[in-house]
């Protein structure tokens, strides 16, 4: 019940991250840390609707894309990139509500199918719409400083990603201790029984989906400000949606630390395998990464954190 261990763990991560941001100067390492935090945020965002609420989304990249495109549009129109945070969140939430409203109350896989369809639609729309940069995307003009949300070094980006990660983890800790969190878990376990104790499925899931979309959008803003170049393949593609879902599944669906663990495995594994076996265009790295994912899925279907939680429960005798 108590949130204290989680808060201490989060505090420790923030301190370590700040030490890295201010102490390290190796761009490669800082880039890894930034990527790791960003994926952890995206994984947690996915976890709200797909983990806690149990509706698997295969289109989460479009919410990430909402933030990234909001950022690009603001900057190229001479507006502050800070404005992209609320604007992207608004667009992402609206998209989530439109996708979720007709599908989140349905049984079966309609929701997952709808997310794929809407994601494909959004990607095509971006690819063909002049004011969204078509297939070329956007290059953000170079600037510097907190007002422009751009920095010559990577340290401040790591700090920003750390702030976002901490905010998302705190929100999730709060979710687990809220009526909404209990209701989502109940709905995932048994929707009929959930209705019998007064839970409004569509309302709860729409709220979760909207929050989920807004978190992903915030990550998108940060990503655009970091890479200063966005286009449909780097922000909206199905491959990104699948990466996000994989992180959530590998780490452990519906757990507080699952997405962070999944992101760690994803970034370390993907980079390590790519360094060792990648290059030369042979694609061995992808084969090996895929095999590892399959192994985790086959041996530990509850993911890394799910397995640990189960082991703890067994020790306490919660499971006969």
């Amino acid at each position: 019940m108590t949130a204290k261990p989680h808060l201490y763990a989060l505090g420790a991560i923030v301190v370590l991250g700040l030490l890295a941001a201010f102490g390290l100067h190796e761009a490669v390492v800082l880039d890894l840390v930034f990527t790791l935090l960003l994926y952890a945020v995206l994984g947690q965002s996915w976890n709200w609707i797909s983990g806690y609420a149990g509706n698997i989304s295969f289109g989460h990249a479009i919410f990430f894309g909402c933030g990234a495109y909001a950022s690009a549009l603001c900057v190229t129109h001479g507006l502050s990139p800070w404005l992209a945070i609320p604007a992207g969140a608004l667009a992402a939430a609206a998209l989530a509500l439109v996708t979720g409203f007709p599908t989140l109350g349905l049984r079966g896989h309609y929701f997952s199918i709808a997310t794929i369809a809407v994601a494909a639609l959004v990607e095509t729309f971006a690819r063909t719409t002049p004011w969204l940069g078509k297939a070329n995307g956007f290059e953000l003009p170079i600037a510097s400083g907190w007002a422009a949300l751009q920095f010559p070094q990577k340290g401040p980006y790591v700090v920003l990603a750390l702030v976002l990660f901490a905010a998302v983890q705190l929100a999730t800790i709060a979710l687990e201790r809220s009526r909404l969190g209990y209701y989502l878990r109940a709905l995932r376990a048994n929707h009929a029984a959930a209705a019998s104790v007064g839970i409004d499925e569509r309302r709860c899931k729409l709220i979760a989906f909207a929050w989920s979309a807004m978190m992903a959008s915030a990550a998108g803003v940060l990503y655009a400000q970091y890479t200063l170049f966005i286009d449909p393949p780097s922000t909206l593609a199905l491959a990104i949606s699948i990466d996000i879902a994989l992180i959530g599944v590998v780490g452990g669906i519906g757990t507080l630390w699952g997405p962070a663990a999944g992101a760690l495995v994803y970034v370390v594994l993907a980079k390590a395998v790519a360094l060792r076996f990648g290059g030369a265009g042979k694609g061995y790295d992808l084969v090996i990464y895929g095999a590892i994912i399959c192994l985790i899925a086959a041996l530990r279907p509850y993911g890394i954190v799910g397995t640990i939680v189960d082991a703890l429960r067994r020790r306490r005798g919660a499971v006969a």
Binding site: A186, A189, N190, A192, A193, A194, A195, S196, G198, E201
Partner: peptide
């Protein structure tokens, strides 16, 4: 369905419908 509970009717199921991965207290 979910509004009926709020009006003051509770029910159990013939075939038990537990929240499998929740503890009894949860």
């Amino acid at each position: 369905y979910h509004r009926v509970a709020a009006l003051g009717i509770g029910r159990t199921y013939q075939l038990v419908q537990t929240f499998a991965d929740m503890t009894v207290l949860e």
